[in-house]
Design a protein around this nucleic acid. Sequence first.
DNA 1: TAGTGGTCTAGACCACTGG
DNA 2: CAGTGGTCTAGACCACTAA
Lengths: 264, 264
Amino acid sequence: MSPAQALNYSFQKSSTITVGRARYAQLAQSLVDSINGGDYPVGSLLPTEAQLCGHFSVSRTTVRQALRQLQDMGLVSSKAGVGTLVRAKYVKPQYVHAVQSVSDIFQYAKASGAPKILVTEEIDADASEAELLRCTVGQRWIKIESTRTFTRQEVPMGLIHAYFPPAFSAALKLIIARKEPMYTAVETVSGEQIYEVEQEFRAVTISARQSRILKVKAGSAGLYAIRHYLNSSGKLMLVTLSVYPADRFSYAMRLRYNPKPTKE
Amino acid sequence: MSPAQALNYSFQKSSTITVGRARYAQLAQSLVDSINGGDYPVGSLLPTEAQLCGHFSVSRTTVRQALRQLQDMGLVSSKAGVGTLVRAKYVKPQYVHAVQSVSDIFQYAKASGAPKILVTEEIDADASEAELLRCTVGQRWIKIESTRTFTRQEVPMGLIHAYFPPAFSAALKLIIARKEPMYTAVETVSGEQIYEVEQEFRAVTISARQSRILKVKAGSAGLYAIRHYLNSSGKLMLVTLSVYPADRFSYAMRLRYNPKPTKE
DNA sequence: TAGTGGTCTAGACCACTGG
DNA sequence: CAGTGGTCTAGACCACTAA
């Protein structure tokens, strides 16, 4: 056992609170304090691992374990050949809404039957569609109009318009014949995974046409959900636009503070 | 250089795709495959680290790095004196909506001025309030009615009802005098951090009374947001109930696939 | 008490980055 | 090219858990 290690362990035994911690944790805390204090400004490099080994009289393993903790906190990032870059001065606590899959974004999926396809067509985007689809006017898209119905009920839960690129037209068959959810159909046909989903909620007044399909009074309130599905390159894979009458649907989410799994 | 390491490196050089990976990554993949395949059922223990060292002819450091990867994936968890427990058969991909603080839950906060307090009172929960506040009828709460206004505008963005326990009545002063946001005032007064926020959106028809305050036509559509703020014990710290006219507010969120910081 | 994972050391080779 | 972080080894002591 090296002198430094012996010192550490005896120190642990003779103390009570602060010092029962592992040396890498102490080192991590020390580094966090230094960054918080401005010793290492954002954009600068931390001392090299070798230097930290010397300053703190610990092995490189211990230094690296401390640095990994700082990386997990989002304070620094390391790059071979360069060094350890300070990315933030403070740890930003995160509230996180985590869902296990895209399907979980739609909590109702389990409680509802397959969507009922009303219309499928190829369209050339008009001005408002171009904005929604983030493209130029006249661009071609496939459009599906459908409803979702509660299991064993006649009244539809919501009216859904979906758009995807003509390149994925084979998805239509999967959706209609195999009754796959639209996003999985698009993933299958494109061979790409949906990487990001943007979701927006607002209230709208239900139009006369929508009200007939939804069997609700025209002019009544509806929840409007716009969803953009993107691949990892940021390319639009699917856009959906849903209207839910006030009493038939709500979207609930839970944001938790720092849910990072702790050691056990 | 040990024979095993030499073998590894020569193997890396002579290969192209699969094998450029680090040994710990290969080992991790192998373990994931075994768990997926049912070799180690959920609830069972993985071989000990020493056994894995032997089976795969790697050092314990490498084994532990592989196991850490599995822990990050949520497949296993380790406990000193026990072993490495299999917790899940498959990696569940996560889509995550992360916000940096409670204030980020309200994107509008920056664009809007301080809330305008209309009424503050102590109430005994009636039936509908008891449901909202998850308490028994007659329980006492402090209620604040307020509006939020766009900066430099007269028309309110939304109407907000907030409820918190009488024990936090000192928060009132902070909210009114110091214009603190309600959730920080409650955090300050209680000395506890808000750990979890439940958020629900639905559409509603704006009532006559609400319409007068919001300066909007009665019967028009509104976005209804219900938020429950809980501490780490699950105790309700604050409940807010907001109504936003259709054109004045929308809630947007972005869900990303596995946003875990990758190595750089 | 025996065996597990948690921590730590000292030393090594590698790929990558920049001058 | 020199120096950085990325990976790996062999060996050690510790705290914890269960028998």
